[in-house]
Write a protein that binds this DNA or RNA. Structure first.
Lengths: 192, 192
DNA sequence: TTTTCCACTTGATGTAGATCAATTTATTTC
DNA sequence: GAAATAAATTGATCTACATCAAGTGGAAAA
């Protein structure tokens, strides 16, 4: 189960066996059943988390009780709430498992230690954050400039590898539309 | 004109006079008239930029020729295109001056040198990036969960210090709505 | 001053997507 | 494998926002 993470590391950076062992020694393995929470609103998030198996979602619940999905995450993705972690404030987000899930966790102090001791590790993380920043920016642009259908087509193209694993109601939530609307959009696309 | 940037630095971190001098020595001052570009689509962005005076916008132009404003920036804000800078690829964005503007520029190599030599400087930049990441995330959530009126009210509250300096048509673009709609929203709010 | 030009408003109408309600189709669960 | 539960579709109607078109007011230009 740690193996998936090790393979991920090997694909990104070259590490000595001491470094590998150091990383492994501070990792925490965790399994979650479908629908279980990794983070609940109000709790303070303490980790950096990497998904080795399964599919998760990060979402906020509004004052009407409606869930709004901000991110999905699958194998080889990092997830968490950077804001809560950084400021050590109660999170406004929930993270739970859409499928049975396995994750590798690192506490913030251990993670920072790894970044300090292994420059390549830090650079890898920096690169991921930068990329993630750009993805968010692109999504903001899409949100102010594209129709629901365009956003859906972008989504299934960009996330073709896991889009079919996600219930449509959740994709609709992520896109900011209603499940009925997504159903009609799909119907429209199919007829073309 | 550099003074505003120096005051900003002093408010954030403590530097030796050598460090201050080092930073100053690699800074580039630039003035722009209203409507002039700092970055044009297709060009590769080479700098880190800090606004010391005036107001700017970052926007993309879609295939119908419509401008979509992604960010505004005023005094004491950093601006640029991290994606283009990081990958050294042609930018998909434009940055221009909404008012006459003064900026402080740092080339990427010089900026990285400053980050390497002055850890506090690097930490300051990291903190800004983290904060900016969180702001983007909050904006994504708003885009999928809030009405146009709510987004407008959020905007004028969050950016109360400069919102009135920005033409309404540009605020509308930033919010992803039409100027006519924003006008009606404002009218509705005023009548309450 | 008068002309020109934007920024903004207002009205009439159109449309994408929401809402509500009823089925149908898949998945779980026992 | 039937019953129960959840996910997705479909139809009718409603609403927020867009579009198109005129008109107003205020600042810059001449």
């Amino acid at each position: 189960m740690y193996d998936t993470f090790q393979q991920y590391l090997d694909s990104k950076i070259t590490l000595t066996s001491d470094e590998k062992e150091l990383i492994r020694s501070v990792s925490i393995l965790k399994k979650l059943r479908k629908k279980q929470y990794l983070l609940q609103e109000g709790d303070v998030w303490k980790y950096h988390a990497f998904i080795t198996k399964g599919c998760m979602r990060t979402y906020a619940v509004d004052d009407k009780g409606i869930e709004h999905i901000i991110y999905f995450g699958v194998e080889n993705w990092w997830i968490g709430d950077r804001e809560s972690l950084l400021n050590q404030t109660p999170s406004r987000l929930n993270i739970d498992a859409i499928e049975d899930v396995e994750v590798v966790l690192f506490t913030a102090p251990n993670f920072d230690m790894l970044c300090a001791k292994i420059p390549d590790f830090r650079d890898m993380i920096q690169a991921i954050i930068s990329k993630s920043f750009n993805v968010n920016q692109t999504r903001i642009l899409a949100s102010i400039s594209k129709s629901a259908e365009e956003k859906y087509l972008d989504f299934i193209q960009k996330y073709a590898d896991f889009a079919m694993r996600i219930p449509q109601a959740m994709i609709a939530s992520y896109l900011g539309i209603k499940p009925e609307t997504l159903s009609r959009i799909r119907n429209g696309i199919a007829k073309k």
